Simulated scan of single mutants.
Amino acid sequence: MCFEKKQNSEIFIKTVSIKDAAELLEIYRYYVENTAITFEVEVPSLQEFSARIEKTLKKYPYLKAVSAKTGEILGYSYAGEFKNRAAYDWAVETSIYVRKDLRKQGIGRLLLENLEKILKKQNILNVYACIGCTEKEDEYLTNASVTFHEKMNYRTVGRFENCGYKFDRWYSMILMEKILGEHKTPQKKILLFSELTLDK
């Protein structure tokens, strides 16, 4: 499935391809090396990162925000398995990363809105975000992501105290949830991203 949608005069939202891996990895590198937004402590290799993209696209959307003027990737978002059990098929975990110099410009909102629309077409119902949080904000982590997800109508459903150790400090994680549809019996089966027909 190839998704492309022009959001405004400046930004396209498109499906990521493997050839985007290096550019996406550079965006992610900043968050690994300089923040506790991700609890990953070593930057993955390009080979590993490419494999992650390939695995995701077999089932879920992996989107990029692209500058209409320069073609540069401004940020990206994707969904992945919440748990590796068939009964969890209607639930996913999402991630969003925006280029460090372009945060707080609405790019994350565009990425998440489009991601959620596609997930809903896949018959996904429960969307989760696992977010690093802290009682005392520091140079590595603020609670901006929590505030962002609250504005996107996510609610906190769980908290894991001091579960992540990075930069010689302990950080907590909260689980935030958004329900995209109605839970029914029987429930519609999940459609693979590749099976969808999407409006441009």
Rank of each mutant, 00 (worst) to 15 (best):
M1R: 03
M1N: 07
M1H: 10
C2D: 06
F3Y: 15
K5Y: 07
K6R: 15
S9N: 13
I11G: 08
I11W: 09
F12D: 01
F12G: 03
I13Y: 04
I13V: 14
K14F: 09
I18E: 15
K19L: 03
K19V: 02
A22E: 15
L24D: 07
L25K: 09
E26A: 00
I27M: 09
Y28L: 02
Y28W: 02
Y28T: 01
R29K: 15
Y31L: 05
E33H: 02
N34C: 05
N34A: 02
T35K: 04
T35R: 03
T35N: 05
A36S: 11
A36T: 03
I37Q: 03
T38K: 02
S45H: 01
S45D: 08
S45G: 15
L46F: 03
F49S: 12
F49D: 06
S50E: 14
R52F: 09
K55C: 04
T56P: 00
T56K: 06
T56Q: 09
Y60Q: 07
P61K: 07
K64V: 12
A65P: 00
V66C: 06
S67I: 07
A68C: 13
K69H: 12
T70V: 03
G71K: 09
E72L: 07
I73V: 14
I73K: 04
Y76H: 13
A79K: 09
A79S: 12
G80R: 08
G80S: 15
F82I: 02
F82V: 01
K83S: 05
N84Y: 01
R85M: 11
W90K: 07
S95F: 11
Y97Q: 08
R99P: 01
R99L: 11
D101Q: 09
Q105I: 02
G108D: 04
L110M: 14
L110S: 05
L110T: 01
L110V: 06
L112E: 15
L112W: 07
L112V: 12
E113R: 14
K117Y: 07
I118Y: 15
L119W: 14
K120R: 14
Y128V: 12
Y128S: 02
C130E: 05
C130A: 14
I131R: 04
I131Y: 08
C133M: 10
C133D: 04
C133G: 03
E137N: 12
N143Y: 11
A144W: 13
S145D: 11
T147L: 11
T147S: 15
T147A: 15
F148S: 10
H149T: 09
E150K: 13
R155T: 14
R159Q: 09
E161T: 10
E161L: 06
N162K: 12
G164T: 06
K166Y: 02
F167A: 02
F167L: 01
D168L: 05
R169D: 06
W170D: 10
W170M: 10
W170R: 04
S172V: 05
M173R: 03
M173Q: 08
M176C: 08
E177G: 00
E177C: 09
K178I: 01
L180P: 04
Q187R: 12
K189D: 10
I190N: 09
E195L: 07
E195N: 13
L196N: 11
L196C: 10
T197V: 08
L198Q: 05
D199E: 14
